[in-house]
């Protein structure tokens, strides 16, 4: 599988945190694209389903030196250690309700298969997975806006961002129909990407040098010499990934000019950051 991978896609994203305004368009676009339900009180953020979630980070300093940044967090579509497809969540699902598409790099979630053990949620350090604690209910008449491209979920199963896989399916449909081998960059864009009014999100194939996302990220195809689990590290010093040191190998990259923001992407021991911050991205390991 992995051998004939040269044609395989690796869809990913780079989010420019300096452009992000925290406006929430990506969240709502995602919800309305993916038939995400809503309930009366959504202010308990720990049981509120938002595939795309926007975190607000501060630099921890006091007035007037305090700064904030917004960090949109979809599912990171981790490639897992060594980028072999054993994402933290995929490897633990006991019933294969989630798998890693080696052809796209996308982590799926199949609601009809999931029986709600929630192990994947425990495995995900990004809180990108959501459980349907309630039966989804739409106020009378509102089912009319549900999209047939995405299955509504039932109570008791886990759901998460799918990189709008149905858009990939639709794009492939056209390509098949027109007898093309593959799809163009613009044909497959996620709902959050197209909605972002600031253009902060760039989506595309990390394996394709022609794609914008590749050009910004410049992923290093080789394992990080200092941490063999880390593959695909960005060669752009302004780009980082969330919790890169864990070796989850997320496909969401973040871009920021601000050092404190880049530092917030991972955990560092005292003084560690200063030693490595100028190295592209930032990971070190003991091996």
């Amino acid at each position: 599988m992995k051998q004939n991978n040269n044609k395989a896609h690796k869809f990913g994203m780079v989010i420019d945190l300096d452009k992000c305004t925290g406006c929430g368009s990506c969240m709502v676009s995602c919800m309305s694209e993916n038939n995400v339900p809503f309930k009366e009180d959504e202010s308990n953020k720990k049981d509120s389903i938002t595939w795309m979630s926007v975190y607000k980070l501060t630099n921890g300093k006091s007035f007037p030196d305090t700064q904030i940044v917004y960090m949109p967090r979809p599912c990171q579509h981790c490639g897992g250690k060594g980028d072999h497809g054993h994402s933290p969540c995929v490897s633990v699902c006991p019933a294969v309700a989630t798998d890693y598409g080696y052809d796209t790099g996308i982590v799926s979630q199949i609601y009809t298969r999931c029986f709600g053990c929630r192990y994947c949620m425990g495995a995900c350090p990004y809180h990108a997975r959501y459980f349907n604690w309630w039966d989804p209910k739409w106020p009378e008449g509102m089912e009319n806006y549900l999209s047939p491209d995405v299955s509504p979920r039932m109570r008791g199963v886990v759901e998460k961002c799918s990189f709008c896989y149905h858009r990939y399916q639709a794009a492939r449909d056209i390509a098949y129909y027109e007898g093309r081998d593959d799809i163009e960059e613009h044909e497959y864009q996620t709902a959050c990407t197209t909605a972002c009014p600031a253009g902060a999100i760039v989506f595309g194939d990390l394996n394709n040098p022609a794609h914008q996302v590749h050009q910004i990220v410049k992923p290093d195809p080789h394992p990080d010499p200092r941490n063999k689990h880390v593959v695909g590290k960005s060669r752009n010093p302004k780009v980082f990934r969330l919790l890169e040191r864990l070796g989850t190998n997320p496909k969401i990259y973040y871009l920021s000019e601000r050092e404190w923001v880049r530092k917030a992407g991972d955990n560092y021991l005292d003084g560690e950051w200063d030693k490595i911050k100028n190295y592209h991205g930032a990971t070190l390991s003991n091996d």
């Binding site: 006991p94 019933a95 294969v96 309700a97 029986f115 053990c117 008791g156 199963v157």
Partner: peptide, 16 residues
């Protein structure tokens, strides 16, 4: 504990 108790046997049938 599981969200869909009636599908609990999937852990055996569709074992990963």
């Amino acid at each position: 504990d599981i969200g869909q108790p009636l599908r609990g046997w999937f852990i055996f049938w569709h074992a990963n």
